[in-house]
């Protein structure tokens, strides 16, 4: 079984799904991510699905579950890079990605996480210097 790698970048865990995942690989990713969130204390998870040419109901449910697990572990999940054809298909399939925040790309996903941590008034545990300044112009 293939495993999806999880990268740590500052206070964020980045998962870039590059393979056509079997259901077992998807379940493994949920478990691996939960462990990494706890082990690293990261407050953000970005799941990059740029390379995925479909999201079916199983993967959709996995994304929702990861978002819920992360939330319980005090981390925010953003799914980025969904292809237009995938978005069209998801809507027609009837899948609403409950509780999932999305952004167009990794950069915007990181901004979204930084902004939402700032809104929470949290002091970031990571070494990211601008998450502590909550003042907005």
């Amino acid at each position: 079984m293939e495993r999806v790698p999880i990268l740590k970048i500052g206070d964020i865990l980045l998962v870039s799904i590059q393979v056509d995942m079997s259901d077992q690989t998807a379940i493994q990713l949920q478990e691996d991510l939960a462990e990494r969130i706890v082990a690293t204390g990261c407050h953000g998870v970005i799941i990059d699905i740029t390379a995925l040419d479909i999201v079916d109901s199983f993967v959709g449910r996995m994304l929702s579950t990861i978002a819920s697990i992360s939330k319980v572990l005090d981390a925010e999940t953003v799914v980025v890079g969904m292809r237009p054809a995938v978005a069209i298909t998801l809507v027609e399939l009837g899948l609403s990605l409950n509780g999932i925040r999305t952004a167009l790309n990794v950069e915007r996903g990181m901004e979204l996480i930084a902004a939402s941590r700032a809104d929470d008034g949290d002091v970031a545990l990571g070494d990211d210097e601008d998450t502590e300044t909550t003042a907005t112009p």
Binding site: D56, S57, F58, R83, I88, T89, L93
Partner: peptide, 17 residues
């Protein structure tokens, strides 16, 4: 078309499962 490919592969994935 790309959208139709995506729809068909997604449907096939659901039914194969």
């Amino acid at each position: 078309s790309l959208v139709d490919q995506t729809k068909l592969v997604t449907a096939a994935s659901e039914l194969a499962r």
